[in-house]
Amino acid sequence: MLLASKTARHASLNAAAAFVLVLLQPLAVAQAAVPDTQVVIPKSRAPGPGDSPEAKGPRPANPRDLTGKWNRVTEFQSYGAVKGGANEFQNEILDAQNNNRQPDLSQAKARIKGLKYVEAVFTPAGKAAFDKNRPGYGLRIGPPRLGNDPQGNCDPWGVPRMLNGQVAGPHATWEIIQEKDRMWWYVPWHHEVRMVWMDGRKLPTLDEVDPVWNGYSVGHWEGNTLVINSMGFNEKTWLDHNGYPHTFDMKLEERYRLLDANTLELTMTLTDPEYYAEPFKSDVKIWKRDTINNKAWDENAYCVASEEGRFNRLIRDGEVGK
């Protein structure tokens, strides 16, 4: 439905339209071939503090000091999938498309034990908003020229997308800077500095705030678990690369704890009843401290809208010779 309407809008681009049609076919097969797409998120997967085994590395000098640069080591989890499902299916879809064959999603399933695509439990309004978002990743992957991912303009990812970047390098890394009354999440590539109040204040109500990219956040410690509650997000951001939407009413809870000096655990619960019929509980996400600064290749690298826009138009959209 979505891709068909796109095709109509771009009817003059014959090659583009042909490509979309090629893409549409595997998508239809993809949906037919995965019988469990409509099941709800398994309760057994719902994580909580203490669900993951304790790491056995060095004990942190201070279990409440999260300062450092952290690289995610667990697989990306979409807001409609578990265990990197959308990524793996996307690889298979593209491979099949490149080789003029039908996708075999059982192969993708075989590569990751327990892989299952689990669609979000949308409300009708949520599904309609989801259908308007045209991503460059996941099961609905399309070329950037036909998409509307806000990151194409170097817009901020916002929260929670900045916490759970899908692809490699700077997209799966952030830095925490901690002071007494505030904590900061630093994500250079998308110009993001996200501030969390740690001074004991309460969250404002929706009537008291204007929508902002990263929302308003307050945190507190429950033992050695940092609990952050956030609200007030604008509706321009996507939850992830696959185009999951949210409303201004979205609320997010993050729970962090150090498993050892170099291992950080995060679980998240997202509620947005206007778009999702039940809360989304994330898997247990693990980050490792960047002790050797091995990701320094992204240091001070920023997504600059003028550079990225020119690159997308001339190269990725293929308009250089026009």
Partner: peptide
Amino acid sequence: AAGLLLGAALPAMAHHGTSVTYDTS
């Protein structure tokens, strides 16, 4: 030949989404 570059194509896609823009075969 189709598939010759397959091994290189998939990681490239995963990082930059290039396979959706270019025919990496």
